[in-house]
Design a protein around this nucleic acid. Structure first.
Length: 374
DNA sequence: TATACGTGGTT
DNA sequence: TAACCAAGTAT
């Protein structure tokens, strides 16, 4: 019982840690050095919200152009709520983690209908919105509403690991909770938003993962890891599993100036996106034979599987695709009223109207570069 | 708790 | 160059 209670108890800052001085010095640095970013023009909750979703696991420089475009197309919560999902996905094309876009729109609809179009300002309510987890909830509440909530991301965990010389594995979910307890105790009155952003800014500009710039660090004096000279050994982070290799056979099938594409399932990897038909390569089988049989069975298309066009490699966090791309010359097609997967022939010039994942966009690019289609 | 979920930049 | 990393969330 005593042990359980101890486990639930909040982690405490070290007695000697100078909270006030730390926050003050960090904020002074932030005020002077913060970057001009498109989402820092004001603190509008919707603008903050969109930026935080886009920035999840995504670099600032990558997000910038997407953010500008997104805010032009969907300037308000209502505009986003009322837009066709396809348009939202199109604006997200190439950014990755596409469920973010679907969840963001679903949440915008929820805010429009249940909250009169106003992003809720309580942890309870905002956390119920799709796509808003502990980090994003804290970020929006602190930045847009000046609530004293922590926003603990990878930067903050790295900064605090070093600052307080903590060896907890930041890859474990429980560690984030511990950091939230600690950060909460350092948030200065009235400047929660700036403080959270300052911690992240420090991680992004100074307290770098491999090469911490301690000599220019505004909180050099407070850093326990630096005092011990172990800043390069922190944070501790368990190794991720390597991506699993998956070999796919891709069929590029032309009918005049049209190409056959299909829609991926609404759940799972690259949900709802369009792609060239493909099948996972069988372990021990001739590629051409397998593709020939598969096209006939699944789409009723008898095709001459010609020379392999190219090999495209694409790595996800958890998968490594090797796409063997074949040019397939149709010999005969069954008269079907519809095909599985919503498959259909689309003129090459109209492919851009469909949302493709990068791996398949690479194929389109290859076709263009090799004069396969005008 | 561990895994699924994208993509591109950095060392 | 092969990791490693980036303003995480859902299940």
């Amino acid at each position: 019982m005593a042990e359980k209670k101890a486990k639930q108890q909040n982690s405490k800052l070290p007695e000697e840690f100078e909270v006030f001085g730390f926050a003050n010095d960090l904020l002074a640095w932030y005020d002077a050095q913060k970057r001009d970013l498109p989402w820092r023009i004001n603190r509008d909750p919707y603008r903050v919200w969109v930026s935080e979703i886009m920035l999840q696991q995504t670099r600032v420089e990558t997000v910038k152009p997407y953010y500008q475009n997104f805010m032009e197309k969907f300037p308000t919560i209502e505009a986003l709520a009322d837009a066709p999902e396809e348009e939202v996905l199109k604006a997200w094309e190439g950014l990755g983690y596409y469920s973010r876009a679907r969840n963001l729109q679903a949440a915008a609809r929820e805010v429009k209908e249940q909250y009169n179009g106003i992003v809720p300002d309580t942890l309870e309510e905002i956390s119920r919105l799709k796509g808003i987890g502990p980090y994003t909830a804290g970020a929006i509440l602190s930045i847009a509403y000046e609530k004293a909530e922590p926003a603990v991301d990878g930067n903050v965990m790295r900064v605090f690991s070093r600052l307080l010389l903590m060896e907890d594995d930041i890859a474990k979910p429980a560690t984030r909770v511990k950091f939230e307890q600690l950060v909460r105790q350092t948030i200065p009155d009235g400047r929660a938003g700036d403080f959270n952003q300052a911690l992240m800014e420090l991680g992004a500009l100074v307290c770098l993962p491999r090469t911490p710039q301690c000599l220019t660090c505004p909180v050099f004096d407070y850093c326990l890891a630096r005092k011990e000279g172990v800043q390069h050994d922190l944070p501790v982070k368990g190794k991720a599993k390597p991506p699993r290799p998956v070999d796919m056979l891709v069929a590029v099938i032309a009918n005049g100036d049209q190409l056959l594409i299909r829609k991926r399932p609404e759940q799972g990897l690259l949900a709802g996106m369009w792609e060239y038909p493909m099948v996972e390569k069988a372990a021990s089988r001739n590629e051409q034979d397998q593709l020939y049989d598969w096209l006939l069975e699944r789409y009723g298309i008898e095709a001459d599987i010609e020379q392999k066009l190219t090999r495209i490699e694409h790595t996800f966090s958890h998968l490594h695709w090797q796409l063997e791309v074949y040019w397939c010359e149709p010999i005969a097609m069954e008269e079907l009223s519809f095909w599985p997967d919503q498959a259909k022939f689309v003129p090459f010039s109209q492919l851009s109207e469909y949302v493709f994942p990068v791996a398949h966009a690479k194929i389109t690019e290859w076709l263009k570069n090799h004069g396969k289609q005008a």
